[in-house]
Design a protein around this nucleic acid. Structure first.
Lengths: 250, 250
DNA sequence: ATAAAAATGTGTTTTTTTTACACTAAGCTC
DNA sequence: GAGCTTAGTGTAAAAAAAACACATTTTTAT
């Protein structure tokens, strides 16, 4: 993925003590997934296969949000993706929590610290051209993430926690859904994220109060049952009607 | 405040491209306040007085949370204070948004970027020994913060927004209150933060549902009216009874 | 064409939570 | 002890949340 030339360019342009790691969430097959990528790590004379979160260093001229968007582009081919920083990880030993990971760190950085900013991002998996997905990347069930390098399990857990938290206050589900979707798809997504089930009638009553959820004059096609109505999300209406509900409710 | 010797030590030990800026909130005189500090900036042949948020660089061996705690100690003399990171500010031009600020930046850093991690912290102002408060620090009404250097107004606004957001989900008020407090003090604090008023009976009904709010067998003293019952916060009970209410409520 | 299968779409009742609202009680000061 | 100041308390109405079941529409198989 990273060619030697790219590495050299990066070496020159990046702030090496600051990186960005991304937890990329996607929704597919009624399940919430996250993207992990494989690295080959020579250790003890053997090649180990280890998994990590996609990440990269911050370039001299970009904000960290731009770094995150760049990582998204590299990993999925997609642009204009929702990315959100959620936490900085700054344990001075974070790269050497496990001996076998540390050999992976570029020698030049072994005496340095790398502080990383955790981002999560939300994509609609059906937008991803799988040929764009790099060979060493893999979608994992969000509830069954394996052991990752460095402190990446901690980063992942915090990302997932933050995602659930944010989902209750912002219309983030729509970032994970296709442009046109049914209410059942939307409900199943909530259920996948919160690992529970909801009553269909109550769910619909609730989401029908969202003024930015637009029913379309269009129905599902290609399904072998009664086709459902399609809906879309209107971001402008959300922006206009959002009232900062930062109130202590009585 | 910073002596020359301290500066030299810091130069040696810190990661200069990463800093921490703290918005220190305190509650006093029924008002929510924030701490700002004055800097003298020579510009255009004159000495300008400018205000900024307290901040510092990250030392080589400490986490950013430790940096924030260190800043708190320096500014207020207090230890074991609640600090919380809320956002990274990484605009490459963030130190040169205003010409008069940029001359304040150490010459060595002018060709560098400094990425800063924003923290907010909550203290009980009555704990602060005002002789510990450094000369150039000042408490400002949280709703009337003046123009600050660099991007510090942006940092401040995000901190305040995040504080209100977090206050709805975590028992942070108790960090701002003295160890023993009355329900009226607690209510006035909520009112100061959310800039509103609540009905006394409804407020009490609501907070009385918090199992970690402990009524004491003790009443207020030194007031010229009926003394109120004192309450305290039991963090252990909170930890034990907290149910991650990360649920999409139906 | 008809029956079976699969998912859509809809209403009511009960319970819980939120809101609005006003007076008496207790201690302090003069 | 009169007056001041804040503490402390209950009820009714409205709104929101929860629990719960069946008829409808389309496709597919026979």
């Amino acid at each position: 993925m990273e060619t030697v030339e790219e590495k050299n360019i990066n070496d020159f342009e990046t702030l090496e003590t600051i990186s960005v790691d991304c937890v990329i969430f996607g929704y597919d097959d009624n399940k919430l997934k996250a993207l992990v990528r494989r690295e080959t790590v020579p250790y003890n004379g053997e090649i180990h296969l280890e998994w990590k979160l996609p990440g990269n260093h911050v370039r001299r001229d970009e904000t960290i949000d731009a770094t995150a968007s760049r990582i998204l582009k590299e990993q999925t081919g997609l642009e204009n993706i929702y990315v959100k920083q959620f936490m900085v990880f700054s344990n001075p030993n974070r790269l050497r929590l496990r001996e076998q990971d540390f050999v992976w760190v570029k020698p030049r950085l072994r005496d340095e610290r790398v502080i990383t900013v955790g981002f999560y991002s939300l994509i609609n998996v059906s937008d991803v051209d799988n040929s764009m997905l790099i060979e060493d990347a893999k979608w994992e069930n969000a509830y069954e993430i394996k052991e990752l390098m460095f402190d990446h399990n901690e980063i992942y857990d915090e990302a997932f926690k933050k995602l659930r938290y944010d989902l209750l206050h912002e219309p983030l589900v729509f970032e994970l859904l296709p442009e046109k979707f049914t209410l059942t798809q939307m409900q199943k997504l909530y259920e996948a994220i919160f690992n529970t089930t909801y009553d269909k009638r109550n769910f619909r009553r609730k989401v029908n109060k969202m003024p930015y959820l637009i029913p379309l004059d269009e129905i599902q096609s290609g399904v072998s049952h009664k086709p459902a109505r399609l809906y879309s999300y209107d971001r402008d209406i959300y922006e206009k009607t959002r009232t900062e509900r930062f109130d202590f409710r009585m």
